[in-house]
Amino acid sequence: MTIKAVVFDIGGVLEKVVPVDAWLARMAGRLGLERLAFDGRIRQLDPRGLMGTGAMTEADYRQRYIDVFGVSESDADAFMAAMWDWYCGELDYELCAYVASLRPAYQTAVLSNSADGARREEQGRYGFEQLVDTIIYSHEVGLAKPDPRIYQLTCDRLDVRPEEMVFVDDTDYVVESARAFGIPTVHHRRTPDTIAAINTLLTAGD
């Protein structure tokens, strides 16, 4: 089957992101809290994972931080700024240059588990809307990986069958779920290896 589209995750793939555990440790230190106490409060901000499907807004999350941690408005602003800096990480320039090179021979897309504010932050920093043909953010569509419905939505947006697209992600269970849906997958670990694996899949159907 000929591949017609290549789809990429953002965090941990197009963006190099510090592991969440390291970031949480840094934030706990800023507040002078023991890590166990800090983690307990952080879990109270969005215990049901509502941000990922758009059921909790960025403003709601910020207010929850104020309520749970008992901090000021300015402290909440500083936390949110630090959170977005961590969330967006640093651009993988090598991989993004490769993504850009795929068009027009292939459609390209982003499929990302996200939160309200992600499009603003990532577009402002990295211009992903100009890099790919379409962006599917989980918080905008009300579905998140590994829900198979978000893979079907991606296929529908690109007008391809599952076997006609390649999906690149860095999370084990997401890669497994996409593969179970019938999508050829690449488990991202190192950029050169990912590019080589994509190229192998692209040429396999020639």
Rank of each mutant, 00 (worst) to 15 (best):
A178P: 01
H139V: 03
S138R: 08
S112K: 06
R190H: 12
P148M: 09
A178C: 04
P146R: 01
K145S: 08
P184T: 07
P192Q: 11
M51S: 09
V20S: 15
V99E: 03
E34N: 14
G32H: 13
D159A: 15
I195Q: 08
T185P: 11
Q123H: 13
S72I: 03
L50S: 04
E163V: 07
Y93P: 00
A82N: 11
T53N: 14
H187C: 07
G40T: 07
N113E: 08
T134F: 06
R62Y: 06
M165K: 07
L36S: 14
D206Q: 15
V174Y: 12
R62T: 12
D172E: 13
S177T: 03
T134S: 10
A76F: 04
D133H: 09
E73C: 03
R41G: 11
V20P: 00
S114Y: 03
R190P: 00
T154L: 13
F167M: 08
R43Q: 10
E129H: 15
E73Y: 06
T191Y: 10
D170H: 11
E73L: 13
L33V: 01
G12R: 04
M27Q: 14
F128N: 09
A115I: 11
L95N: 01
D46F: 12
K16N: 06
S101C: 05
R41M: 15
D116H: 06
A37C: 02
A81K: 14
